[in-house]
């Protein structure tokens, strides 16, 4: 899974999410969720503890949706509107069904998201978007640089909090007192980053060598058509 082209993998999973979003197929949702999680769990190098922790919000949201659907159905559970698409019921307001439809869909999205997040690398994704999907280098490297600043910003958030505490100033997690110095710093940093890129010879329209080549292999197309073909078949026949 890790060797797939990240750009094509993203495209595959976006199409899969769109297919799932127009229907409410409980069994298919659960199969997708379980399949994705199984593949992610078995992929070598995946931090399984982090995967389980990452799934927690999805399980909680699914539980919430299940409870809401079960007890607070819009029609009180007696009647409902039935909508169909691809020959599938997209809405059927029996309370238990609604609950399962809503919660299983969240799990399916969670599975697809985790499959991508835990088997892909942000750097390779940006390279693939640049090489296969013609994202301009200016945006690609800008996104990467901003992404690399996340740990620095997190560290700065802690420093500003500590600095204010040392002055005896009370500031909540999103207080303007805390965010203002960070905003000033971020503005300066964005300018210095642009200068840094230019000082290292970066020029958007100039020819550039490629150190990291992300290739598209037959396996990427197999994954793209295979997964989405299976979902479509599942929608039609399950």
């Amino acid at each position: 899974m890790k060797s797939l082209n990240p750009g094509y993998k993203l495209l595959t999973l976006i199409i899969a999410s769109l297919l799932l979003s127009v229907t409410f197929h409980i069994r298919l949702n659960l199969i997708i969720a379980a399949g994705c999680l199984l593949v992610t769990f078995c992929t070598p190098g995946v931090n399984r503890r982090r995967l389980l922790l990452g799934l927690l919000p999805f399980f909680l949201a699914a539980l919430g949706m299940f409870t809401a659907g079960l007890y607070f159905g819009a029609d009180g559970g007696n009647q409902g509107v039935e909508v169909t698409m691809f020959g599938q019921r997209t809405l059927y307001a029996s309370n238990l069904t609604t609950a399962l439809q809503l919660s299983s869909r969240i799990l399916a999205y969670g599975g697809l998201g985790m499959l991508y997040a835990f088997t892909s690398n942000a750097f390779e994704l940006v390279m693939s978007l640049m090489q296969q999907f013609h994202l301009p280098p200016k945006f690609a490297y800008g996104i990467l640089a901003a992404y690399h600043f996340f740990p620095v910003v997190r560290e700065e958030y802690g420093i500003v909090g500590a600095a204010l505490k040392a002055r005896g100033v009370k500031a909540g997690p999103v207080s303007t007192k805390r965010l203002f110095p960070m905003l000033v710093q971020a503005m300066e940093r964005s300018e210095s980053l642009a200068m840094a890129m230019e000082s290292r010879g970066f020029q958007d329209d100039a020819p550039r060598a490629t150190a990291f080549r992300t290739r598209v292999r037959p396996a990427d197309f197999c994954f793209l058509f295979g997964l989405n073909g299976l979902i479509t078949a599942g929608l039609l026949f399950l």
Binding site: F123, L144, H148, L193, R200, Q203, A206, A209, A211
Partner: peptide, 15 residues
């Protein structure tokens, strides 16, 4: 501009 030592040097070489 990059996250790792080798990526930073390669970035300049690509440019």
């Amino acid at each position: 501009c990059m996250d790792r030592v080798d990526h930073e040097v390669l970035f300049a070489l690509e440019n």
